[in-house]
């Protein structure tokens, strides 16, 4: 068959595409369990982090997660007993600047203080809005009082806001829109948690 003939081109392209796609689906199949476990692990660790527990070992983290929170369905609010305190824990998702931000937020029973917050995934600019997943940003939420008007993510004096009683969190420099989006996301969650707590 001539190399430039119509049939050769069609058959060649088909075979090449078939072989490569076949290999990819094999590899994908072989690793899908691992990828799924990684994903589970990330959200389990986010839950544990939000309530102030750190577990780096994967298997332990997964078992501790199911002990404390049981099966978590989507974004339902979970009541968890952490060291004798009942906490409200909720996975959330909200609109960031570029895409969806998902994470976990934990508050105390009467929703007067945030216990912790962790980010599972986001699509913000790496190095700018993407810094919301860094510890200095997330740690500002730890133990933060929730004023009636909600949390404020503000432009600060540099560094992070270390006062847990003012309900103010320092935003990310150079990422005002992501910071503003985080403020909206967190306050939406607080409103939902308050509703649940009032019932």
């Amino acid at each position: 068959m001539k190399k430039e003939s119509f049939f050769y081109v069609v058959i060649f392209t088909f075979i090449v595409a078939f072989i490569f796609v076949f290999i990819i689906s094999l590899v994908n199949n072989a690793t899908s369990e691992r990828v799924a476990r990684n994903r589970e692990l990330v959200s389990a660790q986010a839950f544990l982090n939000a309530v102030g527990k750190n577990e780096n070992d994967g298997t332990k983290a997964l078992s501790e997660f199911s002990n404390l929170f049981g099966p978590v369905e989507g974004e339902s609010i979970v009541k968890a007993d952490i060291n004798g305190n009942i906490l409200l824990v909720k996975q959330f998702s909200g609109q960031g600047l570029w895409g969806t931000v998902t994470g976990v937020i934990a508050v105390n029973r009467d929703v007067s203080r945030i216990i912790g917050l962790d980010i599972i995934s986001h699509e913000e600019t790496p190095g700018l809005g993407g810094r919301i997943e860094e510890d200095w940003f997330k740690d500002q939420f730890r133990g933060e009082a929730i004023p009636d008007s909600g949390i404020k993510v503000k432009k600060g004096e540099g560094g992070s806001d270390n006062n847990p009683d003012n309900g103010i969190v320092d935003g990310v420099t150079g990422a005002s829109l992501t910071s503003a989006a985080m403020e909206v996301i967190v306050n939406n969650q607080i409103a939902e948690l308050r509703k649940e707590a009032a019932e």
Binding site: K3, E4, V9, F12, A17, I24, V27, T31
Partner: peptide, 23 residues
């Protein structure tokens, strides 16, 4: 074949990139 040279190259590149992504 010369006609589909670029398409095949892109296919090969995409193949390796997806592999890297999965790994």
């Amino acid at each position: 074949p010369r006609k589909v040279r670029m398409i095949v190259q892109t296919l090969i590149i995409a193949f390796y990139v997806i592999l890297v992504d999965i790994v």
